[in-house]
């Protein structure tokens, strides 16, 4: 699944669309601690986190992760928004919990269908 296709699914709110809609997503990564993300974040992964600041964006681009999904209703702060726009970094958000969000994305990315997750967890998407 590409970033553009993820956007079209309409399961996440688009904060900043970014400039690479054709970039292929290959996995999902979860952790809010930047050093852990730095060491373990995989190339082309979607990073589901609650940390919406400029440092998240720096770690994301240094590790070559593909986009950020802010879960649990987290928001990107103002400096982060400016940087995301300047550098064309894709950022999405959702009110749903991290686990459900990551599972849903995993199903879509790895299996091409996340509909069952929505039913089982009752997540409003």
């Amino acid at each position: 699944m590409t970033i553009g296709e993820l956007q079209k699914l309409n399961i996440l709110e688009v904060v900043n669309a970014g400039e690479e809609p054709e970039r292929e997503l290959k996995g999902v990564f979860c952790c809010d601690l930047l050093s852990v993300a730095m060491g373990r974040g995989q190339e082309d992964a979607v990073w589901v986190t609650v940390m919406g600041n400029i440092n998240t964006l720096a770690v994301m681009s240094l590790t070559d992760m593909a986009c950020i999904v802010l879960a649990e209703g987290a928001v990107m702060d103002e400096a982060g928004m400016t940087k995301a726009r300047q550098q064309g970094i894709p950022v999405f958000r959702t009110e749903n919990p991290i686990f459900e969000t990551a599972l849903l994305l995993y199903r879509w990315i790895k299996e091409g269908n996340g509909a069952a997750v929505t039913e089982n967890t009752g997540a409003e998407v």
């Binding site: 601690l33 930047l34 050093s35 852990v36 730095m38 940390m51 440092n55």
Partner: peptide, 16 residues
């Protein structure tokens, strides 16, 4: 509060 301070910095530097 910004996500730093995991105590993994120096270990990451050593590892990578």
């Amino acid at each position: 509060n910004l996500g730093f301070g995991a105590g993994m910095g120096l270990p990451n530097m050593k590892k990578y």
